[in-house]
Write a protein that binds this DNA or RNA. Structure first.
Length: 105
DNA sequence: CGGTTGACCAAGT
DNA sequence: GACTTGGCCAACC
């Protein structure tokens, strides 16, 4: 299936451990401007353990949410486990943010 | 088909 | 620095 959501998951899976990406970059990599729709698809999260949704953050370098807007603490913990660095404000360091590879079809 | 919502974004105040 | 506004696009009702 090559629906919008499927592209989101595919791109998300390409993120290497220890790095993160943003909703915007993720949206760009799948050639869409719907950053919000990206987050929406992840919120549905059809494959909770197959897709590293915790590696997707906001463009402000804030972690954003994870499984609803309140559970950001767990997301932060997971990212720390993967080796992602934060500063005191809970912002991801810019150097850890990468751009996912474009999925060409 | 129209209106609301959302793990957002950029610009303005 | 914070909060507000308008905009974006897909999913849902």
């Amino acid at each position: 299936m090559d629906s919008f959501s499927d592209r989101v998951y595919k791109a998300t899976k390409t993120i290497p451990r220890g790095y993160v990406t943003t909703y915007k970059l993720l949206a760009q990599s799948i050639s869409t401007k719907a950053y919000r729709a990206v987050g929406q698809s992840l919120s549905k999260n059809p494959h909770p353990l197959t897709i590293p949704c915790h590696r997707v953050i906001r463009s402000d370098r804030r972690v954003g949410g994870y499984l609803s807007k309140k559970n950001s603490a767990e997301k932060l913990h997971l990212l720390k486990q993967e080796g992602v660095a934060f500063d005191e404000r809970g912002r991801v360091k810019t150097e850890c943010i990468i751009r996912p590879k474009k999925l060409l079809e």
